[in-house]
Simulated scan of single mutants.
Amino acid sequence: MAYDNTCKYLAENYPAEFASWLLSIDTSDIQVLKTELNLEPIRADSVSPVLREGFPPQATGEPVRVTFLQIANQILHLEFQTTPKSTTPLDFRMLDYYTRLKREYWCEIKQVLIFLQATSSAIAFQTQYIDTNTTHRYRVIRLWEEDPTPLLANPALLSLATLARSDSPQRLLEQVATAVDMIEETDERQNISACVQVLAGLRFDKNVIKQLFREEIMQESVIYQDILQKGEQRGLQKGEVAVILRLLKLRFGAIEPEIEQQIRKLLIAQLEELTEALLGFNSQSDLVNYLANISPLQPSLGD
């Protein structure tokens, strides 16, 4: 999660730099779009019961959290991945994002899937989704194959430079540290340093990183505080879930796995409301009905 937050921070705070790197466009006319795409259910006039059998459940308007940049009359969709593993296959996710964006904005869409950590998985070398009647293409960047030179030249991209191609990774990290020290504005230097240290953790031992970067600089940064806050929230969420599941099992015995999964996906505010509501439940059916009336908040295809 720290890697996701870091990449999201960089893309949304330095959109012009990412546009210049990925699209070779130099412009300040860039807007960070909302990170949710709501898609209403689509109902076909007729679906054969035989053909429908075994199909996955239909989407029900769930929002999807992603990073989109609108540049003039086109949209740049950035997707960062540390591993090729995904509940929803990555190639299909790219198609899904594309169609949702197209329906809402109806403009040219550029998609870039960026793999941060070296892998030999075939998924990282796949650049299209192919189905019976559909072929959808997107761009893939494997950072470990990228030339670090353009990344080292741009403070916003220094974090990615730590993961770029190099015959001497240690020397590359030293170059990044030197470039970070040259950033004049204090807050920016602190935030970029924090991002560098987080992403460098995918490749380097933490002791190597500590030798080159001062820990107090990282702790003062906005991104570091954001990571800490989200970590605390996840801890609180897990604690709330544990308490609720224990109370429910004491009252109603074993809880259906599907119901337990629904509870685990609730946010802290929803869990707090459920804790109060369950005092009035007389049976597990009351719990089922209660959960059915809760609107899902910000689930992600990337989970």
Rank of each mutant, 00 (worst) to 15 (best):
P299T: 11
Y98K: 08
V176F: 00
A242K: 14
F68Y: 15
L247N: 14
S193V: 03
I42R: 12
C7A: 10
N38V: 13
R251C: 07
N282C: 08
L199C: 06
T149Q: 11
L151S: 03
S166K: 01
D29F: 02
I141E: 07
I183W: 02
G231V: 04
V176C: 02
E145W: 00
V241P: 01
L274D: 03
G239I: 12
L76T: 11
I123S: 04
V176W: 00
K230L: 13
L163K: 02
Q219D: 10
A156H: 03
A277K: 10
Y138T: 13
R100Q: 05
D147P: 00
V140S: 07
R234T: 13
E145K: 05
T82Y: 04
F80R: 07
Y97R: 09
A177W: 01
S48P: 00
L51C: 07
Q117H: 09
G231P: 01
Y98L: 09
A194E: 02
Q126D: 04
L212E: 12
R251T: 06
A44F: 05
A16H: 13
I25S: 07
Q298I: 10
I75F: 04
L199M: 03
N191Q: 08
S295A: 15
A242L: 04
T67R: 06
A177P: 01
N293T: 09
F68D: 15
T127C: 05
F80H: 11
F55T: 15
T88F: 05
I192Y: 01
Q298F: 07
T127P: 00
S285R: 14
T127L: 00
C7D: 06
I25A: 07
E79N: 14
E185A: 10
Q81H: 09
E276P: 00
L33F: 06
H136L: 04
T83Q: 11
